[in-house]
């Protein structure tokens, strides 16, 4: 039973003993269900054009940044460079612009990625159900989509225009993915945009309802913290390290078998410790700029990377902590005949 009052009180409590117990339970469940396997992936930004004006985001249409969209030859070069590092699971990202990065463009990138990587995931604007089906046919099997916040009032303030202003369309997207047959679905909120206990409770309820309706899906949760832009009025509510770790533990205890992802926006200490407590998937050697792996580097990334360790360094860290680095964790199965 997920109750917001309970989550609020756990997050606010300064009882170290009960926190330690929470962590112990989360660590035990993680070991029981995932053993020591930790899967590794890397993001690849295809474009940073966006049709929305999210007040907190570095890619917002209103921000005067360099805009880029990789050409097919550049996509190949990026993928060549990234796969050369040993990464076998790629997460393809775009800004949320249907006009600059239409479905056909993304589909083509998925097909290119499928030729070089074992697993292809997407973090793009929400699609229609048949469009998710097209992505699966092209070789994608995972989608990450952040609701950003489940607080409708706050959502409306932060997303003033563009397709993203439609809360419900975004909220229903994971169901469209599931109906289309998407294998892995990752949900999350951007911690700090709204009171976190409420957002966490809503995220957990969303996960629970998807798990019940679509039991075969490999569900994951992701817990990015808002990194406020320096010159921006939206600074959000700071989320402490303790609160972040408590949320990861709570997610693990409530959902013993789901994946939990933590990105390189967190610093190495937090990432390394969270791996014991619930995190099962981490990005490594990430570049968050368009063209970041090959030559054409656009300097404006979506967020600044706090963990700049190479893939080899991350693998060494995992082994030193008694964990098993997993580079290949699934083989995308595109439509027959490809």
């Amino acid at each position: 039973m997920i109750r917001v009052e309970e989550i609020r009180s756990i997050l606010a409590s300064d009882n170290r003993e009960s926190f330690e117990k929470l962590a112990e339970e989360a660590a035990t469940l993680t070991r029981r269900h995932f053993g020591r396997a930790k899967s590794l992936f890397a993001p690849l930004y295809l474009a940073n054009y966006c049709d929305n004006g999210c007040l907190y985001c570095g890619f917002s249409q209103d921000r005067p940044i360099d805009r880029m969209c990789l050409e097919p030859a550049e996509i190949d070069a990026e993928m060549e460079s990234l796969s050369g590092t040993g990464i076998r699971h790629v997460l393809l990202l775009t800004g949320e612009s249907r006009s600059m990065t239409p479905v056909g463009y993304i589909r083509d990138a998925v097909e290119r990625a499928h030729r070089r990587f074992a697993t292809v995931s997407l973090e793009i604007y929400p699609l229609e159900e048949p469009e998710y089906g097209e992505m699966i046919e092209a070789g994608a099997d995972g989608v990450t989509l952040y609701q950003e916040t489940y607080n409708r009032t706050r959502y409306a303030e932060l997303h003033p225009y563009g397709r993203k202003a439609d809360y419900e369309y975004r909220r229903q997207a994971p169901e469209r993915m599931a109906r289309a047959g998407m294998h892995r679905i990752t949900l999350g909120v951007l911690l700090g945009l709204a009171p976190i206990a409420e957002d966490a409770a809503e995220l957990f309820l969303h996960l629970e309802s998807l798990q019940r309706q679509y039991p075969g899906i490999d569900l994951s949760a992701s817990f990015p913290r808002l990194i406020p832009l320096p010159d921006n009025p939206i600074q959000g509510e700071p989320v402490s390290d303790i609160q972040l770790i408590k949320l990861i533990c709570l997610a693990r205890i409530l959902f013993p078998t789901i994946g939990i992802t933590l990105s390189t926006r967190e610093r190495p200490l937090i990432r390394d410790k969270a791996l014991h407590l619930g995190v099962t998937r981490i990005s490594a050697a990430s570049r968050t700029t368009v063209g970041g792996y090959a030559s054409r580097d656009c300097h404006d990334g979506q967020f600044s990377v706090q963990d700049e360790r190479s893939l080899t360094e991350v693998i060494t860290m995992l082994k030193a902590n008694g964990m098993d680095p997993v580079l290949t964790d699934w083989h995308s199965l595109p439509a027959d005949g490809q």
Binding site: S83, F117, A118, V326, L327, T328, D329, W330, H331
Partner: peptide
């Protein structure tokens, strides 16, 4: 698990 076998290229962790 076939899902864990690298089918494309040699990796340090196959």
């Amino acid at each position: 698990a076939l899902r864990r076998i690298d089918l494309h290229s040699p990796t340090p962790e196959n």
